[in-house]
Design a protein around this nucleic acid. Structure first.
Lengths: 123, 123
DNA sequence: CCGTATCCAGCGGGATACTG
DNA sequence: CAGTATCCCGCTGGATACGG
């Protein structure tokens, strides 16, 4: 594998970045990985302050990318469940190191430079 | 380490995502990691089709986040070099799995669903 | 309950011309 | 060479109200 000498191909990210860079995409991928499935209203609560439109938008994009799948049960009241696909699960694994890095970075960076994290009120 | 049971903390990404999700940020981080340093004009060529304003913008943001550093030599004509900081290098390592995943994802996804990658003309 | 329909503000980012 | 100064467009994403 010559990937070792040049493992980082940028162009590969061009396709997926517009999707996973969306504000709530990673959040959904990660939260969804914690449970077997989640419902719409559940995400509205657990993902922070997101509007139904924004959530619907990002869910649709994640479906198109086949990172999540939508399972619709014909009941009254209607019930819809979302779950990670195989792609979604592997993505969740792939961003693990990034999340871990971010945690450490925040600690180090915050130790001598505050303003950066001022962007993160996290109510 | 209880990180094993719940390694994925979303809030950690809130601080850095707005920076690294910028269109050219990852590209710069990766390219910069290939050489000891790069100059402005060099990036203009090697990063694809980017305008000087966009490049200046993202470089400034990466400096603020202390992922890259700017070294200015008092010469005529002026010479400025950019290089990764320690944070930048560790980030580059952390996104390795994501890039590798993206490569594989493109192959698998492309095999039965073309439109997604139509977004990537890559001239 | 699970969304859709509208409307709208902010900003990311490209094109272009110009400067120290 | 290494940017800055403008201008402008399109997309993201929030607020709100409504529908099956």
């Amino acid at each position: 594998m010559e990937e070792e000498s040049d493992p980082l191909c940028i162009c590969c990210l061009r396709g997926i970045m517009p999707t996973i860079a969306k504000k709530w995409a990673i959040c959904i991928i990660v939260e969804l990985g914690r449970r077997p499935s989640m419902r719409f209203s559940e995400m509205m609560k657990d993902c922070g302050k997101i509007s139904p439109k924004s959530l619907a938008d990002v869910l649709k994009e994640l479906q198109n990318a086949e990172l999540i799948e939508r399972v619709c049960y014909a009941e009254v009241p209607p019930r819809v469940e979302y779950r990670l696909t195989e792609h979604g699960r592997s993505l969740r694994v792939a961003i693990g190191p990034l999340l871990h890095w971010a945690k450490e970075y925040n600690l180090l960076f915050l130790s001598y430079r505050i303003p950066m994290l001022a962007k993160v009120p996290d109510p």
